[in-house]
Amino acid sequence: TRVETATETAWISLVTALHLVLGLSAVLGLLLLRWQFPAHYRRLRHALW
C-alpha cells in the first residue's frame, strides 16, 4: 500500500505540473497572438462576444 500511495502522489504531481505547463503555454500563446495580431484579435473577440 505504501508503494501504491507513492505512485499515486507521483501521478498527481505529474498531472498538476502538466496542467500548469499547459495553462501557462495557453496564456503565453494568447498574449503572443494579441501582441502580434491586434486587429485580428479584436475582430476575433468581437465575433466571440
Rank of each mutant, 00 (worst) to 15 (best):
R45I: 05
I12K: 12
W35T: 15
T16M: 09
L28Q: 02
G29V: 14
Y41A: 15
H46E: 09
L31T: 14
E8D: 10
A6C: 09
E4L: 11
E8C: 04
G23V: 14
Y41V: 15
L44N: 02
T1E: 10
L14I: 09
E8K: 07
L48I: 14
A26Q: 01
V15A: 01
Q36M: 15
L14D: 04
L22T: 11
P38S: 14
L28E: 03
Y41I: 13
A6S: 14
L24G: 07
W11I: 12
S25D: 08
L33R: 01
T5D: 02
Q36D: 04
L44K: 02
L44A: 10
L31C: 15
A47G: 08
H19L: 01
A47V: 10
A17W: 03
W35V: 15
L28D: 00
R45V: 07
R42F: 08
T16Y: 04
H40D: 02
L20Q: 03
G29M: 13
P38C: 06
L22H: 05
R2H: 11
H19S: 02
L33P: 06
A47L: 08
A26E: 03
F37P: 00
V27N: 03
E4M: 15
W11S: 01
W49E: 03
L44T: 04
A6R: 11
T5P: 00
H40L: 08
S25F: 06
A6F: 06
I12N: 03
V27L: 12
R43Y: 08
L20G: 09
R42S: 13
H46R: 10
E4V: 13
V21Q: 04
L33S: 04
E4N: 14
T1F: 10
Q36I: 15
L33Y: 07
V3L: 10
T7K: 13
Y41M: 14
V15T: 05
L14H: 03
Q36W: 13
W11Q: 00
H19G: 03
Y41N: 04
S25I: 01
L28C: 03
A17S: 09
R2E: 10
L20F: 11
L24Q: 06
V15F: 04
V3T: 01
T9E: 08
L48P: 01
A10Y: 05
T16E: 04
T1I: 13
V27T: 11
R34Y: 08
L31R: 04
E8R: 03
A26H: 07
A26K: 05
L44C: 10
R45N: 00
L24R: 01
L14T: 04
R43D: 09
A47R: 14
L24C: 08
L22F: 08
W49T: 07
W49F: 00
V27K: 01
A26P: 00
L24A: 08
I12A: 10
T1W: 09
W11D: 03
W35I: 15
S25Y: 01
F37H: 04
W35H: 15
V27F: 12
W35L: 15
A39F: 10
L18A: 02
R45E: 05
L22W: 06
L18R: 02
V27D: 01
L44V: 14
P38K: 15
A17T: 08
E8P: 09
Q36E: 13
R42D: 11
V15P: 04
G29P: 07
H40P: 15
L20P: 05
H19K: 01
H46W: 03
L14F: 00
G29N: 01
T7Q: 11
W11N: 05
V15S: 02
